[in-house]
Amino acid sequence: MTKKNYTYLIMVIPAIIIFFTFHTYPTIQGIFYSFTNFKGYGSWDFIGFDNYLNVFQDGRALSAYGFTFQFAIVSTILVNIVSLLIAIGLNAKIKFHKTLRAIYFLPFILSVLIVGYIFRFIFTHILPKVGDTLNIEFLASNILGNQELAWVGIVLLAVWQSAAFNTLLYLAGLSTIDQQLYEASDIDGAGPWQKFWKVTFPLIAPFFTINMVVAMKNFLMAFDQIIALTGGGPGQATESISLLIYRGAFQGGEFAYQSANAVIYFIVIVVISIFQLRVLEKREVK
Rank of each mutant, 00 (worst) to 15 (best):
N146V: 03
K286F: 09
F275E: 05
Q147H: 12
V199A: 02
I31R: 01
I143G: 04
S83H: 02
T124C: 10
V12P: 01
Q179Y: 14
Q236R: 14
I118E: 14
D132Y: 13
I272N: 00
E148R: 10
F49H: 02
A87T: 10
L85R: 08
W197S: 08
S273F: 06
G145E: 09
N54K: 14
I122T: 06
T76N: 00
L53Y: 11
R101Q: 15
I241F: 14
F56Q: 03
V12D: 02
K198E: 11
N80R: 01
F201Y: 09
V130T: 10
Y65W: 09
W160E: 03
Q225W: 13
L277W: 07
A72N: 00
I227L: 14
I210H: 09
N54A: 13
I241R: 12
A92T: 08
Y41W: 07
A222Q: 12
A158Y: 14
L169Y: 08
W151N: 13
S111Q: 07
F38S: 00
S111T: 00
I267E: 06
I109Q: 12
N91C: 11
F119L: 04
I88Q: 14
L277D: 04
L244I: 02
L174C: 11
A184F: 12
E183F: 05
S175Q: 11
Y52G: 00
I73C: 00
F208R: 01
G30D: 11
I118C: 15
I154L: 10
A262D: 04
P206Q: 13
V213H: 04
P202E: 09
M11Q: 04
V130E: 06
V213E: 04
F223W: 10
P14W: 04
T209N: 02
A163R: 13
R60F: 14
N135V: 15
I16E: 05
F108A: 14
T68H: 03
F108I: 08
I227H: 07
I114L: 15
L171W: 05
R247I: 13
K3I: 00
D50Y: 02
I17S: 03
V55D: 01
N37K: 02
F266D: 10
E183V: 15
A92R: 15
N142M: 05
